[in-house]
Design a protein around this nucleic acid. Sequence first.
RNA 1: GCCGCGUUGGUCAAUCGGCUAAGACGCCUCCCUUUCACGGAGGAAUGACGGGUUCGACUCCCGUACGCGGUACCA
Length: 531
Amino acid sequence: MIVYPVSKISFPSPKLLFLRRMSQKKVRVRFAPSPTGGLHLGGVRTVLFNYLFARHHGGEFVLRIEDTDQTRFVPGAEEYIMECLRWCGLEADEGPHKGGPYAPYRQSERKELYRRYAEQLVEAGHAYYAFDTPEELEAMREVEKAKGNYAPQYNQAVRGIMRNSLSLGAAEVKDLLEKGAPHVIRIRMPEQEEVRFTDMIRGEVSFQANTVDDKVLLKADGMPTYHLAVVVDDYLMKITHAFRGEEWLPSAPVHILLWKYLGWEADMPQWAHLPLILKPDGNGKLSKRDGDRLGFPVYAMNWTDPKTGELTKGFRENGFLPEAFVNMLAMLGWNDGSGQEIFSMEELIEKFSIGRVHKGGAKFDYEKAKWFNHQYILKTPDDKLAALFQPVLQEKGITADAAYVARIAGLVKERCHFVNEIWDHGFFFFAKPEKYDVDAVKPKWSAEKQAFFEAWMTVLEGLDDFSFAPVEESFKQLAAAKGIKPGELQLPFRIMLCGGKFGPPVFAIAETLGKKETIERMKLALAAFTV
RNA sequence: GCCGCGUUGGUCAAUCGGCUAAGACGCCUCCCUUUCACGGAGGAAUGACGGGUUCGACUCCCGUACGCGGUACCA
């Protein structure tokens, strides 16, 4: 225990408390998804912040699968989540995939563990058995609603009239338990108590405990609910900092009380409730529906629902580089204050601080996401880009030399937002044009121009060095000799090689195509232009 | 309804009481380039509202409005 001079610091700042804690314990964080479907962009960001925080502090990052709801279990979802983390380069140090000192990491495999803590709470008077059937619960809600109660809760107002170990006699409870009557265990929220805590992002947050209902802790099937499971597992797994979405803020008092009632208050993690990622138009949480509607991915990778077969698009399959995806997510709610936007993973780890995370939600901007990807395409070496592009070529039945593809990638990458767009800006490197944009040539075409190209072909035939500069030089010289402005000839030349008004600088195209191919294309085009 | 959390340009956002309010995306104009981009130079565009506190408020406090989240034997 560190003692601070009270005269100096009467009110230890959250930052100070934080630093104090920091020096005491090894940082351990966790990402705890439930395997119910595709991994949302917001989920990946939560992983990222966990990961960055852990690495920044030399701590550990745990993956825990929260599969306590058997009815919502979706086969394949867990493997999918792990593949997402692998793709993003955000793999956990411990988890179901590689074990660890606190295994098992799937809550369904830890089922037996939770009951004793729930029972402990009952014994201490902080929780109670409830025997109400779903029908009885429903009836209570109907009655309450009829009284004008908008959203009826199982709380101090009604727990006295429901069937539970608070309202029933001890003998009856014992009897029910012995007969194996189905029951749940609920927390008994205090009548008069303010629960307050310091959120690492929001600062001081407080709630009146009686505004939260008596949450179920242990379900009738013996599984814990999220509320019990997070607390027990965070404790058992020695989690020091807990990051989660803002949607958890309202139930935070339940968790804090649980830490207290279980006698673990001193070990409670520091909480950080992350802001939400909002839809670009209007307001509200970004959902996969918005992606479908607006035409961009929301999940990290393609996800196919095993039940319906419905496919939801992912960033990976849409051509995003993982580094770009991660960088973009990091900037959604965090920045280092310098204005820098492009960060390598190493820089993110070095500079990340939870204190600089925004409080408010951020609308997702797909245009900005594309810009990030473009930046990373620019940074990616040509040979690597070519390797990423090969599958696209294969799909089209084209085989091409790796070095040739790399050269093309280098030539066109500055106009690509995605790897597959190398095709859109460089397809003509792989086949002669099938048709020409004659409308762009014909109106200004002339016998003089025709003569120029015929003469130039002969010059080109004789060139030993067919690279950019000599080709351009011979072009300019001949144009000058013929008294034609080079600019008027460049566009026709481009169309001869590419078929249209696109592509990188013309002489670079000629150089890449090579002498033989360039002249062949010129001949073909000249024939087409004069027809 | 109740509880909680938010609110700086169209979007992401800096600012931790001194602001003539950065920067980026997008948009517009120009230059470069007789394709498109990249690059360069400019431009339009912002503190929800009302009260305090203060020499001074985008920054602190209180209201209001608006938005979002929660209000399950889901997470």
